[in-house]
Design a protein around this nucleic acid. Structure first.
Length: 888
RNA sequence: GGGCGCGUAGCUCAGUGGGAGAGCACUACGUUGACAUCGUAGGGGUCGCUGGUUCAAUCCCAGCCGCGCCCACCA
């Protein structure tokens, strides 16, 4: 069946994907036995659906995987999903809320069952969306962070780190989310600038009637938990007050005035209230001065019983109002400044985070970070672009303890059990814990398990080895670890990349991957971050529906320049859909002209100049594309493929061979048909990583029409080897001359408004023997492409002709009566001026002694060549003008 | 307060120490047997500003202006 007249992506995409999957083309270890090439997918949230960031991220991974697979590597793209603790729990809790219930009514075990049920029914829609994009992941190896195997890995890592004292339990201030009722890590806190106020409040000095010390605060409600006022030890204003007490307003508590470097004389009043229970800095000050720590909030950030009765039960903001009202009523409010300050918000819940004193589990990240820093310093891991290494280093070198416990129900429950006396047993499972307890207490002792679960990122940190079977010694782990490339966005370098490096090195003794390719953010076309609230989200699947997956993939690849965000314009996608159409139509051309793939075709043995030329151009393109992908310059690879396909193959080669295909020379025609088919097949190969569907479809057609059908799908075929293809320099020069000649004639025709139907017998004057030979070879072709009746040699330009200069020769288009002689004179004069200007520019350079003595020889040589070329052109143009004048 | 990135054609973006590029948009012409989702030709830019280095700067350096992001405990 011939190719359809129009390219319709929706008709070809589904069937090919299905076939690839059925044939196991994505399966690692099946198609190739070569050196492994491995990418682990950044596991999307089980709740997630495909957004532009995923589309970009996974397109680039698929380009790499398909490229390496074609190059003969045993390509493994390891897919899987993340259980996404908080996000998923929130989704299910929302559902419960709609049903008028909540997780507490349900109980922990039923709630977790409920989440699993939701996961089985609705989780992972994103993978079907990735399939539509053409992602060639090894789906049979799909993993989930809560799988039995991965959970075992998580437990083992926890237990081992605990036994190595790299995990410990500690009581300190944490970032507490009063909506989600859990601790979160530093990274999950989003600091936002917000307008606020700085209240200056007078604290009365004890036993000194009428004397006050003024403190400035953005959070007056926390004064109820103050246990000191700090001033700088060198601050002359307050020197005599250090050691004295103030009477805390509203509370009546006597609290000391302490000297501490933390107090900045420049800030506020220079005296700062100290609330060790609700501020990270104050906590440190409190520790230094052995101050009491008073917790004034409950888990919802409502005031608790540690404050005077009038304030109990108030929510933070209400408390603030109430406190201020009392302060003002007592005449203790000195002044209020309007300021902008940063306020911490929970990145999931969107509520203000409260520093709160709790028991939590921490990872000693500093110790784990050391080898992870060295691995990047030594180049065992390279970031692309390189600059991200600085970001990595600056965070890793100042890394803080990682709070890994979460007060949630969905996640890996911490493998810690407590004895009646609070003794902690950290073991692989309950039986082991009970045994340990029996040993410890000398008798069987009931234990209670820690209620908390682990931070989601704790399990994803193990992803590169847990997905391959660790802690078991599996053949996959042996073969595919360390992986090769990690493709990710910069927003999770800390969350994920850094932690994978730490865990990989610690537990595997080897880096988890060698290259981290960090891609940009996809923004809307105005450069704004896409977000639901702004309503500027472009759904990638809408673009797939409208233009096809290939067009979207190609667009994202072509725009993935390193180190720059992608502002996605729809017109770009449309343009690349048109590109796919162009390719489709070029294939139709080949089909209609019976250009069949010949298994015995030897690109090095072609005899026709035009074929030698296209073989060389193919080699150049293949080399450029290969090099670009290897350097992760996806945009350069895409551009090179685009340009070669459209502007070299379609615009020129196809046009150049038309006369050959229709001509009488059957031997030449036969060779050209085979060569055209071969070139098209090379294009399909080179485009396949970017546009898998349309290329597979066209390849399918091409190979099945061939005398001996190729048995392989494109997806598993070999990648073109540029170095094995000949590049004929003479053929390149010759075709370049033809192309320039045709272009010049077309240009001057358009410029002189020569009517389309004008019949012209062109003459080539002053041609060297080699040029004469070229003309003899290609005259018919040139005439056809330039729409001439004929073109042949002459000794002299005819009268009243339009003349264009190509190298040493002049082409004359006799157009007496058709053209305006004055206009032609003006045109020639303009051309001469242009050439003169160029010559003058070069002369100026060459006249400069500094230039001639200091510039490298090849640059000087270049200038001489340029001068000669322009001079030749100028002379020829002058002669043409003279000729025109004589005739006129 | 530190760190990073960006400012090139109307729009979206490549690129380079030595002759300014692509796609889209725009203009003119075109029903040539692959393709109007097309073809041919063309217009359009002091490469943010100011200095410096250099024989030579859009590219390297410094400062400035504008925009964005990341990190940070400043009341």
């Amino acid at each position: 069946m011939p190719l359809a007249k129009t390219y319709k992506p929706e008709e070809i995409e589904g069937p090919h994907y299905q076939r690839w999957e059925e044939e196991g083309a994505f399966a690692a270890g099946r198609t190739n036995t070569g050196k492994p090439y491995t990418i682990v997918i950044p596991p999307p949230n089980v709740t997630g659906s495909l957004h532009m960031g995923h589309a970009l991220n996974n397109t680039l991974q698929d380009v790499l995987i398909r490229f390496e697979r074609m190059r003969g590597r045993d390509a493994l793209w390891q897919p899987g999903m993340d259980h996404a603790g908080i996000a998923t729990q929130m989704v299910v809790e929302r559902q419960l809320d709609e049903q008028g219930t909540d997780r507490h009514k349900l109980g922990r075990s039923k709630f977790v069952d409920r989440v699993w049920q939701w996961k089985e029914e609705s989780g992972g829609t994103i993978f079907n969306q990735l399939r539509r994009l053409g992602a060639s992941a090894d789906w049979e190896r799909e993993r989930f962070t809560m799988d039995e195997g991965l959970s075992r890995a998580v437990t083992k890592v926890f237990v081992e780190l605990y036994k190595q004292n790299l995990i410990y339990k500690d009581q300190r201030l944490v970032n507490w989310d009063p909506k989600l009722l859990t601790a979160i890590s530093d990274l999950e806190v989003e600091n936002r600038d917000a307008p606020g106020h700085l209240w200056h409040i007078k604290y009365p000095i004890e036993n000194e009637e009428g004397r006050y010390i003024t403190v400035a605060t953005t959070r007056p409600e926390t004064m109820l938990g103050d246990t000191a006022v700090a001033v700088h030890p060198d601050d002359p204003r307050y020197k005599d007050l250090v050691g004295k007490n103030v009477v805390l307003p509203l509370v009546g508590r006597r609290i000391p005035i302490v000297a501490d470097d933390y107090a900045d004389p420049e800030q506020g009043s220079g005296a700062v209230k100290i609330t060790p229970g609700h501020d990270f800095n104050d906590f440190e000050v409190g520790r230094r001065h052995k101050l009491d720590l008073i917790n004034i909030f409950d888990q919802h950030a409502h005031l608790n019983d540690n404050v005077p009765e009038a304030f109990r039960g108030l929510e933070r903001m209400a408390a603030r109002k109430e406190v201020l009202a009392h302060i003002e009523a007592q005449g203790l409010l000195e002044k209020v400044d309007d300021i902008t300050h940063t306020v911490p918000y929970g990145d999931r819940s969107g509520v203000v985070i409260e520093p709160w004193l709790t028991d939590q589990w921490y990872v000693d990240a500093e110790t784990l970070a050391k080898p992870a820093i060295e691995a990047v310093e030594r180049g065992n891991i390279t970031f692309v672009p390189r600059q991200w290494e600085n970001t990595y280093f600056s965070w890793m070198r100042n890394i803080q303890p990682w709070c890994i416990s979460r007060q949630l129900w969905w996640g890996h429950q911490i493998p810690a059990w407590y004895g009646p006396d609070g003794h902690i047993f950290v073991e692989m499972d309950e039986d082991a814990a009970l045994n340990a307890a029996k040993l410890h207490y000398g008798k069987e002792t009931p234990l209670t398990r820690d209620e908390d679960v682990l931070d989601t990122w704790f399990s994803s940190a193990l992803w590169p080895f847990s997905t391959l079977g660790w802690p078991d010694k599996t053949p996959e782990l042996d073969r595919y670890y360390p992986t090769d490339t990690l493709v990710t966005g910069f927003d999770i370098i800390f969350f994920w990349v850094a932690r994978m490096i730490m865990m990989g090195l610690h537990f595997m003794g080897e880096v988890p991957f060698h290259t981290v390719y960090v891609h940009a953010l996809v923004r809307d076309e105005k450069g704004a971050k896409m977000s639901k609230s702004k309503g500027n989200v472009i759904n990638p699947l809408d673009l797939v529906d409208e233009y096809g997956a290939d067009a979207l993939r190609f667009t994202l690849s072509a725009m993935a320049a390193q180190g720059r965000d992608i502002k996605l314009a729809k017109s770009r996608v449309e343009g690349y859909r048109n590109f796919a159409t162009k390719l489709w139509n070029a294939s139709r051309f080949c089909e209609m002209n019976v250009c069949l793939l010949r298994p015995d075709f030897e690109p090095g043995a072609v005899r026709q100049t035009v074929n030698k030329w296209i073989v060389g151009e193919t080699a150049k393109a293949a080399g450029a594309i290969t090099e670009a992908i290897q350097a992760y310059k996806f945009n350069e690879a895409a551009d090179a493929a685009y340009h070669f396909t459209w502007h070299t193959f379609c615009d020129w080669y196809v046009e150049l061979i038309k006369p050959v295909l229709l001509g009488d020379d059957e031997i030449a025609a036969e060779e050209t048909r085979a060569c055209a088919a071969w070139t098209l097949s090379q294009i399909l190969h080179l485009l396949h990583p970017f546009m898998p569907y349309v290329t597979e479809e066209l390849w399918d057609k091409l190979r099945h029409d061939s005398p001996i059908p190729d048995t392989q799908d494109l997806i598993v075929r070999g990648w073109p080897d540029a170095s094995a293809l000949p590049m004929d320099k003479d053929a390149a020069l010759e075709m370049d001359w033809v192309i320039r000649l045709v272009t010049e004639i077309r240009s001057v025709r358009a410029e002189m408004n020569v009517p389309a139907g004008a019949k012209m017998d062109a003459k080539l004057v002053g041609a060297h023997p080699e040029t004469q030979r070229r003309l003899a070879t290609h005259a018919d072709l040139i005439a056809r492409l330039a729409r001439l009746e004929s073109i042949d040699l002459a000794d002299q330009s005819p009268d009243r002709a339009v003349q264009v200069v190509i190298d040493e020769a002049t082409v004359a288009l006799p157009l007496a009566g058709v053209i305006d002689i004055t206009a032609e004179r003006t045109r020639l004069e303009k051309e001469i001026q242009k050439a003169d200007a160029e010559i003058a520019k070069v002369d100026k350079k060459l006249a400069n002694d500094a230039f001639v003595s200091k510039a490298p020889p090849h640059v000087i040589e270049e200038q001489h060549t340029r001068r000669a070329d322009h001079t030749q052109t100028r002379d020829k143009l002058a002669a043409a003008l003279e000729r025109l004048k004589q005739a006129g």
